Simulated scan of single mutants.
Amino acid sequence: MERRTFLRAAVTGGAAVAFGFSVTREAIAYPAQTGPSPYGPLQAADANGLELPADFTSRVLAHTGDAVTGTDHTWHGAPDGGACFADGDGWIYVSNSELPLGTGGVSALRFDAAAGITGAYPILSGTTQNCSGGATPWNTWLSCEETDRGYVFEADPWGGEATRRDAMGRFKHEAAAADPDREVVYLTEDESDGNFYRFVPTIWGDMSAGTLQVLAEADGALTWIDVPDPTGATIRTRHQVDTARIFDGGEGAHYRNGTCFFTTKGDNRVWAYDAAANVLHIAYDDDLTPNGPLSGVDNITSGQAGDLYVAEDGGNMEICIITPDDVVAPFLRLTGQDESELCGVAFNPAGDRLYFSSQRGPAGDSGDGYTYEITGPFRK
């Protein structure tokens, strides 16, 4: 594949940020530009209101307030971040509930090898505004509270006991992305003057103890500095390190092959933190992309071919694809739900089914959320 290999730099917020770096199929040529989707144009909306590429189909899996088909579990309100976990020949999809004041939590959908739903059940309850999160290599779900001095909870997709992970800090958590190569977990913060964190557990695989650090700039270079008080009891964590890098509204995060991709809604950017080189790139910037289709950046994941899939909170209610050859384009569009947001993007283990939710549905209300499955010839 022909690649662009130029490198140019810009100064953003006082720190050098690299653009246009691309090395392998797994890397994104930065910053992405508008172009044709590898899946072709979107077709007319189907019966579920989804505009999809040719040969793709959609299925409604669950709706807030209704029992999931074949189960007695009522689907939660305000479905948000999600992930898939292998389960024998099948898999499990977990979905956060961003409901307030102790009414949030996480539910799970269990599938057999033929994608039939065999179960639905809660795996966390009594929490507040569980927005996004992240899967761990040891098959647990880190569910993050998007509230002032919120917590991270570690939940069992199979329904075991969930545990609050105080050592991961108390702030307005958004997403978590585990990096098994450096044995850390990256964390985003949904504040206009938020930080980008990493949690370094004392023992990898045990989130009960460790060190919370923040990405900072010292002497022109990026560095990780310990947060003095991860509880944020007196001074909020984002204000404790003077040299901390500021990010405008941290949202989704996803780690793949040495890079943590994360989004910031305040400036409509997709960032790429190259952990091995300790360099920060901009993978997408709406201001640098003429006629850019992606706005309201939110949850993010990747497919087996290295494509990124970024859900919109607002915009045209799209999930957009960013390919490794520097193209950004709509992958799907949900019609008739303009007051909602798309979230919870995740692939099943085989990479041939994509899951996501519309948090507020056609009614524009957290009591009208829908969770979908997309099937088709995804790139491998």
Rank of each mutant, 00 (worst) to 15 (best):
S132A: 07
R245W: 03
L354Q: 03
H76G: 10
V328Q: 01
V94I: 13
L187E: 00
I282F: 02
G14M: 11
I319H: 00
P290I: 15
D112P: 06
A120S: 14
L215W: 05
A86R: 14
P230D: 03
A15I: 07
D112I: 14
V23Q: 05
R256M: 06
A363I: 11
R182W: 02
Q129P: 00
A113L: 09
I282G: 02
G369A: 09
T71D: 10
R269M: 08
V106K: 06
T335V: 14
F153Y: 13
D72L: 14
R238Y: 03
Y273F: 07
A62W: 04
G90N: 06
H63I: 13
C320A: 11
W91Y: 15
I319K: 01
F171K: 00
E191Q: 08
I117Y: 09
P377H: 10
S107L: 11
I374F: 04
I322Y: 01
L332G: 05
D298M: 05
R164Y: 06
Y186A: 00
I374K: 02
V68N: 07
F199R: 00
Q43E: 15
A350I: 09
F21Q: 02
L342A: 11
G250P: 01
E183P: 07
A244S: 10
N139E: 15
V310Y: 03
M207G: 03
W158H: 12
F331Q: 07
G367K: 13
P349A: 14
L222S: 06
D338P: 09
K172P: 04
T301Y: 05
I282C: 04
N299H: 13
T202N: 03
D365M: 13
G376C: 13
P79H: 09
W141C: 04
K172G: 02
A329W: 05
P293A: 09
L288G: 11
L109I: 15
L354G: 02
G344S: 15
W204N: 06
S143M: 09
A78E: 04
F171E: 00
L187M: 04
N96E: 08
D193N: 14
A176K: 00
A15E: 03
F261N: 00
L101I: 12
L294F: 03
A350R: 10
N268S: 09
P228W: 01
A175L: 01
A283E: 03
E145F: 05
F56N: 04
A45T: 14
W141I: 08
Y273M: 02
V184Y: 03
